[in-house]
Design a binder for these strands. Structure first.
Length: 479
DNA sequence: TAGCTCGTTGGACAA
DNA sequence: TTTGTCCAACGAGCT
């Protein structure tokens, strides 16, 4: 095989370590050409949102630098992979094209088409796992069906899935030939034209090195308190690895090994969360229609509001007048990320109190999250809306005031992101509309002038949601 | 097969 | 302030 050429198709696996496709290519071929193919015209669920594009720009840049240190480089090509990859493989006389697998339905479909095109012209294809701990088809119930409830999935996962040792990064790479069609990363236009992304750079270091720094900070400092702190948006209790995992700058196998080494059995609460990624991909693989359609078909008839544009905008901009919700939406806008507990609270307000379709929230998250991931995002939104697998019972409607008091008891998270009410004491910061006039005066706050009145009556809209959900229930009872 | 238990993340109210 | 009970009910998954 020496003397032959392999194309390494880089996608969301922007790393050198624990990269099965890369190591396979190096073992089998003398020349390995790393290529990234960017196409903005694909199905809308494949086009990354603005925050993800920012991340992608920097992650591609970081990977190119790493490759250059070892003697190679990343060649970026624009256009549909189904056309570009077979044409390129033919031109450089590649014997093989190799990549690491992705599992979203639209991507899996595209990859199958690319594979068929390559094979039809006599080029071999070799693809590899690594993006998940368990392949979406690896686990099934005793009757052979896919899992729909997390806890049995988790137990089965823990029992059956053994992790191979992560692969070391290569120490040297063969120099690739120049490709005439390669363009600089800047030409992809991934960075936003308005300088909205300043906050992103303050909070994140995209790239493999940044991923390992985040992991080191987490397993050294926080993993021991994870179970207690992970629900606290006012504390740095979570790993913040989600965007790094999404872009494959680090593998879940590397993460699992590191946290187990650092914390032993105490790593279990975190591993349980890590396996949720696998579960989301398992669900999406077996129920691909849930990208847009309710997992529970009963919800097809749910009475979502018809014209929610004005309310949706207030929610997006963090001007609902409900402090915990506004804090979360502003954290999202400034940093491209939101604490998971707060994601549930803002999602509950949108779907239940405002009766706005979960797809509107899902689309906003997809555009603004640096960790936007179809499988995780869709599962989370359907769970909150009550239409998903293993969903929250319909009478579970988060009360953002109670959630704030419980998980941000000092109000520090709200003060950070909603500074106009920072002067309120903690007793009133989560519900300023209930604060006595004297307290508001002393803090120098007039509701409606300095901070909005709440856009909904939480109690009344809760009742309205229960009624709407009751109709979904009756809809089934009549069948 | 039938029966049993349990379900990531809650709220309201009472004691 | 904390703890317990109910809400209302189904279906997934196991034995």
């Amino acid at each position: 095989m020496t003397g032959s050429t392999a194309l390494l198709w880089c996608r969301r696996d922007l790393r050198l370590a624990d990269n099965a496709a890369l190591m396979w290519a190096l073992a089998q071929h003398r020349t390995v050409i790393p290529v990234y193919i960017h196409f903005a015209g694909a199905d809308h669920h494949d086009v990354p949102g603005a925050a993800s594009r920012w991340w992608l720009h920097h992650s591609l840049t970081a990977l190119d630098e790493e490759l250059r240190q070892l003697g190679s480089r990343l060649q970026i090509i624009e256009g549909p992979a189904l056309e570009r990859l077979p044409a390129l493989a033919r031109r450089v006389q590649a014997r093989t094209v190799t990549w690491n697998r992705l599992y979203e339905p639209a991507l899996a479909e595209r990859d199958a088409a690319v594979e068929a095109a390559l094979v039809s012209q006599g080029i071999t294809v070799s693809h590899h796992p690594g993006a998940l701990l368990a392949e979406p088809t690896a686990l099934h119930t005793a009757t052979g069906d896919p899992y729909r409830v997390y806890t049995p999935y988790w137990k089965s996962h823990r029992r059956a899935i053994a992790q191979p040792a992560p692969l070391e990064a290569p120490t040297a790479l063969p120099p690739p030939p120049d490709l005439a069609e390669a363009i600089p990363v800047d030409r992809l236009g991934l960075l936003p034209s308005i300088p909205w992304h300043g906050g992103l750079a303050d909070h994140w270091s995209p790239g493999e090195r940044g991923a390992h720094e985040a992991l080191a900070a987490f397993d050294g400092r926080t993993i021991g308190h994870y179970e207690d702190d992970r629900d606290r948006p006012d504390r740095a209790g979570t790993s913040r690895l989600s965007p790094h995992l999404h872009f494959g700058e680090i593998t879940p196998g590397q993460v699992a090994l590191a946290v187990q080494s650092a914390a032993g059995d105490d790593a279990e609460p975190f591993l349980r969360q890590l396996v949720w990624r696998d579960f989301a991909h398992h669900l999406l693989h077996h129920f691909p229609h849930t990208v847009t359609e309710p997992f529970n078909p009963r919800f097809a008839a749910f009475p979502w509001r018809r014209d929610p544009a004005a309310d949706l905008t207030r929610w997006q901009q963090g001007r609902t007048g409900i402090p915990l919700v506004d804090a979360g939406m502003r954290e999202l806008w400034h940093t491209g990320w939101m604490h998971n507990r707060v994601r549930m609270v803002v999602a509950s307000l949108l779907t239940k109190n405002l009766l706005i379709h979960w797809r509107a929230g899902e689309a906003w998250f997809r555009d603004t999250l640096v960790d936007a991931d179809v499988a995780n995002n869709v599962m989370g939104w359907q769970w909150t809306a009550g239409s998903g697998a293993d969903a929250a019972p319909y009478f579970r409607i988060f009360n953002p005031v109670r959630q704030g008091q419980r998980f941000d008891p000092e109000g520090n998270y709200v003060r950070r992101w909603v500074p106009e009410i920072a002067a309120l004491p903690k007793q009133h910061i989560h519900a300023p509309w209930e604060a006595p006039a004297g307290v508001l005066d002393e803090a120098g706050i007039a509701l409606g002038r300095d901070y909005p009145e709440p856009m909904v009556d939480l109690k009344a809209t809760r009742e309205r949601a229960l009624e709407a959900y009751g109709k979904v229930k009756e809809g089934r009872a009549k069948k």
